[in-house]
Structures are given as C-alpha cells and as structure tokens.
Amino acid sequence: METTIFYIFAIVILIFSVLAVTSRRILRAAVYFLFVLLAVAGLFFLLSFNFLAAVQLTVYAGGIIVLFIFSIMLTSQVNDKLEPIAAKKIIFSLLAAIAGAVVCISAIMTYRFSEPKNIEVDAGMKTIGKYLLSYGENGYALPFEVISLLLLASLIGAIMIAKRDNT
C-alpha cells in the first residue's frame, strides 16, 4: 500500500517537475510547481514527518506559491507565452543535466548505504519544540533565532526594494 503511494508520489513529482521547467505558459509552470510541492509534502507525511509536511504546505504552498502567482500577475498577461528556446541551448542543457544525473545515479547505485535502522522517529510536536528552544547538544536555539532574524531582515528588505521610489 505505502509502496504504491510512494511510487505515485514519485511519478507525480517527476512529471510535474518536468512540466514546471518546460511549460511555456508561466502561470501553468507555477501551478505545476505547486503540485510538485504538494507531492513532496505527501512524501513527508508518508515518512511520518507530519510537522515538516505541514510547514511545507503552509510556507511553500500557502506562501511562496502565492508570491509567485502575485509576481506573475504583476509582470505578465494571461495569453503571454514565453519565447521558444533555441534548440542549441536545449540540447546543451539537456546534455549537461543528463550527464550530471547519470554520474550521480551511477555513484548512488554503486554505493552501499549502511543498513537502515528500524526505529520509529519521534517527530511529535513536543520533541520538535523542545529541540528548537534548547541550546545544549541537539539544541537548535541559535539557528532558530538566526532564522527569525533573517526572516525579519528579508521582510524589511523586500518592502524597501519593492517600495515605489518617492523621487
């Protein structure tokens, strides 16, 4: 059962990723990307990282995608199509990507991963909260604070950049 679901998700991810990077209608690309994100969140659910999956949904699907769509609305029209890409460019890029993928996958196939441990991951809310706010070993208080600072900085930065000049 779970095996099937994994394959479904994997196929969804791959197909929609390809569509997202090849579609010539820019908003469709964004929507395909949304499906990729949803499938990734599904994978997280499948691996019982519920919190992470919900974060993925909120931040990516609820936040970043909306940002994308907004920016697309501001910068193009509904029946705009992206220019077709020169065949030469496609061929070279494809070659580069396939070469990279082949190298990596062959490396992965030859590598013997250590035996997976069959311990249930305790990814409950309480554990996450405790880790995020502790500063001992396995504590993430510092990165947590740094991230919050970064978020604030980017918030202010985005406002300052996108603000219309007064001059």
Partner: peptide, 20 residues
C-alpha cells in the same frame, strides 16, 4: 531527489524568465 535536482538544473539552464 537526484532526478528532481537535475530537472531543476535543466530548468535553471534553459529558462530566460527570472520567475521560472
């Protein structure tokens, strides 16, 4: 994830529009 990664790389290489 490797396949997804290189699909992304391909997109990065061919696309012209910054949002894509």
């Amino acid at each position: 994830s490797t396949l997804m990664f290189f699909i992304g790389v391909y997109g990065f290489l061919v696309r012209k529009n910054l949002i894509t």
